[in-house]
Design a protein around this nucleic acid. Structure first.
Lengths: 233, 233
DNA sequence: CGAGCCCTTGATGCATTTCAACGAATGTGG
DNA sequence: CCACATTCGTTGAAATGCATCAAGGGCTCG
């Protein structure tokens, strides 16, 4: 039980999550040292659950590599995907005793795992770090509100456009080609539409030369401005 | 500049928001005393903005009476309502420098207003209270996820059913009649549908005898169980 | 080479929006 | 107190967007 803070992938993930030492957050190095003691590194096969909705929320995970989606399913098998998470995102920390959604890997992934109670107690002892974390929570809340806005106001094809544009900040500057780690079905469930509608959306954007589809999972945005015009009602 | 903590409406609102003294939260009485010094009581006419999206987020508001909705509008005039807030809800506290949505009163209302920086500094000095507040934030996040789920997975009429059932917890036990403080348009914008669809939803639920409509704003739930069956896909 | 999976495309039907008219409630000025 | 305007809600008819059903194509892997 412990992780190697000096491993580059781990270090960058932690910094992404809690800030880096030159952010001048009080107690951050000690926090990381203590975290490294109490945490574990876990390997996750593709398409497996890190945890499921209603399981006791015993652990908190920080994604080190790979991609994960947060989702909730109905009894009838339909599903809402809440978010796609990438390196450096934290998941599973809530005040409730059980998880309110499931977390499923999209491909092989690795994560740092730490018990929720340990995390809580560390937040109690490092208030500056906790504060940083609450800022992140606030940003997440803002992102979900954006998503709610899009779900309520935009057409299916516009929602897909939003989704593709949201990929851009994750890329290097000027980059407009990217790899989608999720299936059409995942995208459809994220945007609240059928698989077919999502697929038609891709086709239509390609036909209008707003995007190019090298392969099912390799997309290039050809005309960002036109895409932005398209999603603005 | 100061409010009267002993005024019943104010006291209950604050307790609803930060906990009551018998919740045994460290420093709570001092927190309330300090809050009372730095806060103001403001009267708000019906249908006016407490603040608008993109305004500098200078103040935090705690609703004492009346009802408020949080919303965001597009350039073309369409609108998404994020939430309806009632007595004891806090709004406007975020880490960003500007509000990310507008707050508009549904009818005449009163609120406690305090500067955001004062609120922040009090949270720094009363960590137990801040922690209580972050729990509330977590609950809000869970509620928004529920809303996102409903928006993505349910039909328009089902969403309306959800909305009506959500009114119940706010009522006394066994109570099934309530007053809706918002218009059909507000409801439609909350649930991401047209005014007409919302209206047809009410009519249909009335025709099926799941609800009764005494007047436009007075609704009775006649058969809660059937309504729950209806919204479960 | 064939099986299986995922994606695409077409055809059809249903849910929801849009356009339009009407009705009920409320307020205003004569 | 009544005619009138105004606002808000309801209802109908037509148009549209999206889901569903169904078939076929391309990729990957044994």
């Amino acid at each position: 039980m412990s992780i190697d803070y000096n491993k580059v992938t781990i270090k960058t993930s932690l910094h992404h999550c809690f800030g880096s030492p030159n952010d001048d957050i009080e107690g951050l190095p000690q926090f990381f040292a203590e975290l490294a003691e109490g945490a574990d590194e876990v390997d996750i096969k593709g398409n497996t659950f890190l945890f499921r909705e209603k399981d006791p929320s015993d652990y908190v995970y920080i994604l080190v590599s790979g991609a994960v989606m947060l989702e909730r399913s109905t009894s009838t098998g339909s599903r809402q995907v809440f978010a796609f998470l990438y390196t450096g995102n934290l998941m599973g920390l809530s005040e409730q005793l059980t998880y309110s959604f499931s977390a499923k890997s999209l491909a092989d992934a690795t994560a740092i795992r730490i018990s929720r109670s340990a995390m809580q107690s560390m937040f109690d002892r490092y208030p500056a770090v906790a504060q940083k974390y609450h800022k992140v929570t606030g940003r997440i809340l803002a992102l979900i509100l954006d998503q709610l806005f899009i779900m309520g106001q935009k057409s299916a094809h516009q929602r897909l456009g939003h989704f593709l544009l949201d990929m851009i900040p994750k890329l290097g500057r000027g980059q407009s080609q990217f790899y989608l780690p999720m299936s059409r079905q995942d995208i459809a469930d994220y945007l609240g539409m059928s698989l077919e509608t999502a697929s038609r959306g891709f086709s239509r954007l390609k036909r209008s030369k707003l995007i190019d589809i090298q392969s099912n999972y390799h997309i290039t945005i050809l005309d960002e401005q036109k895409l932005r015009d398209f999603i603005a009602d």
